[in-house]
Write a protein that binds this DNA or RNA. Structure first.
Lengths: 332, 332
DNA sequence: CTGTTAGCGCATTCAA
DNA sequence: TTGAATGCGCTAACAG
């Protein structure tokens, strides 16, 4: 590929002039400008972003690490990050961690080596201690969906406790007292926080917590299928199921439908995340919003601001109930 | 951030030695190696990927352009691309085009400026002529989901005609003769190809093509909702609906369920793509596979191979029926 | 096995 | 308004 020198030669100007017109960094005579533009076009030239990053000590790249892009949750998140990047004339470098510590570490290191002008990390397998080192060394690094003690102001997440408290309370207010909970088996804070929200809601409303009714499965479609089968052969009674997330709930409901069990007539189901697909389910899933899009946006904005040594105040990320049709009011 | 020189100084060796141990490009004495490793760790050093790309005239980046990462279709695709990138020690630069020509062009130019070692492009708004210029100038550029005359061997896509012929034929074989078709309103080849598949299947089986029963909407959830309402107030009869894609079908079915119309008892529905969510619907959606994951994989492999001046033979991308429960056999 | 050095392509001083 | 020259951080000859 042509270099800036080729363009300069063809346009009969110096490389400095070419740089100036292509970047608009200084006044250039119309004559020179046109010559440069023509030459640029003739050669099909694009400034080399690597060389530029080196010379400017500043890149146009923002790095993002997620578990898995095909997961609708992360798809929405990455989309938001990309939009912020785009409006700041940047482009996204994306890596996937797949919940594996090795992959996550490799990804972070790779992103760091690219000298990103912003870094948003969703890593759940890397130990706190290691994450803390990174956070200390790279003050523009922002974490998402995880709270690291000492770095709370660079951790973007929702109040999981409150969210799951809300779904459980909703079930209780609709007359349910025997409520199963399908939790995530991942060893992340979210899972504990949400489970605590569930427990507290039960306690606050005088319901008993039945440990037999708390399952742990992979927080995916497959996990939902497993959970559904386990619940169906469960000896303890329950009238409703609260789920760690919508994906679980969706798969669960698919199994129920397949077995001829009617939701919500026989069993009520409530989710968490308000994924795009949840409104398409039959019945549409009652759930709670998880504003991933907004979190992705603000995480990126925060990282960018920190990178540029600017102030940035993170907003609160609200979670709210989306009432649809998968919960039955037992009192009617 | 520290540079290779800082490391060299601290380790008491030359920069060349540091480079050698960090890249494993040549034998280095254990003594020197350890010193380098220690210094590297002490300084929290990562080789600068930009400088390296410049020196090596080769980057570790693969560029991908899609319409929108949050679209489950593209989520799956990007995931595949990333996996291939990862196993080739590369990392993905991701841009979104949102079906807008300007965005697509900016994205392509940005990816080019990064001197990617591979380039997979899903652009549907950029005119053929312009795309052809790019394809000519960058022989490692690969297109996905679009066929550009003259560059067929670098265009990765399925046989849309055959896929939609298959779904329509399936409906016909189950006794349906009045079949509506919900097409995409995007001006892309896919839409025409699929619609032709639908028409041909009808003709081949002696069914009439009723132009009134062919709708065009945005190929999204919103589009599905619109289509459902239009169909419900349609005066012409039909017993089944073939959809351009699963997203449309999902939203369509949600509206039907809401209106108390039973699928498949009253209306049969068939999709296209076999998205992850389709098996969660109630009833689970009968559809046809669209191997996006495999396409993403091979598109990336092809681009990488071309970049490295290697031979690479693209496989056929098969589409096959996934029989579930949204189609009723009228003859039973 | 190791160090010196010359670029890689660009932005940016500094002079003119 | 322009150009010459320097250096960004690294790799890869080359010489030792």
């Amino acid at each position: 590929m042509a270099t800036i020198r080729d363009v300069a030669r063809l346009a009969n100007v110096s490389v400095a002039t070419v740089s100036r017109v292509l970047n608009g960094t200084a006044k250039v005579s119309d004559e020179a400008k046109n010559a440069v533009l023509e030459a640029t076009h003739a050669l099909g030239f694009y400034l080399n972003a690597n060389a530029r990053a080196l010379a400017q000590k500043d890149s146009e790249i923002i790095g993002v690490l997620v578990s898995e892009v095909s997961d609708p949750y992360f798809g929405v998140m990455v989309r938001s990050c990309e939009e912020v990047a785009h409006s700041n004339e940047k482009i996204l470098l994306v890596a996937q961690g797949f919940h594996e510590e090795k992959r996550e570490l490799r990804a972070i290191n790779s992103l760091l080596s690219h000298r990103c002008a912003g870094l948003v990390v969703h890593a759940l397998a890397v130990p706190d201690k290691v994450m803390a080192e990174y956070m200390k060394s790279f003050p523009y690094m922002v974490m998402i969906n995880r709270v690291l003690p000492g770095f709370e102001d660079r951790c973007v997440n929702i109040n999981n406790f409150r969210g799951m408290y809300l779904t459980t309370k909703t079930l209780i207010e609709n007359g349910h007292r025997k409520i199963a909970y399908v939790n995530s088996s991942h060893r992340i804070l979210d899972a504990d926080e949400r489970c605590n929200g569930y427990r507290q809601a039960l306690l606050d409303h005088g319901c008993e917590v039945n440990e037999n009714l708390i399952l742990k499965v992979s927080p995916s479609l497959e996990g939902g299928t497993t959970a559904a089968h386990k619940l169906l052969e469960h000896k303890d009674e329950f009238t409703a199921v609260a789920c760690y997330n919508d994906a679980l709930a969706a798969a669960l409901m698919a199994v129920f439908a397949d077995k001829g069990i009617k939701v919500p007539e026989q069993i009520s189901v409530i989710g968490f995340d308000n994924l795009f697909l949840s409104s398409c389910l039959n019945p549409p899933l009652t759930t709670v919003t998880n504003p991933v899009d907004i979190m992705g946006k603000y995480a990126t904005l925060l990282s960018l601001a920190l990178y540029n040594h600017q102030e940035f105040k993170l907003p609160e990320f609200e979670t709210k109930l989306i009432w649809r049709k998968s919960v039955r009011d037992l009192e009617k």
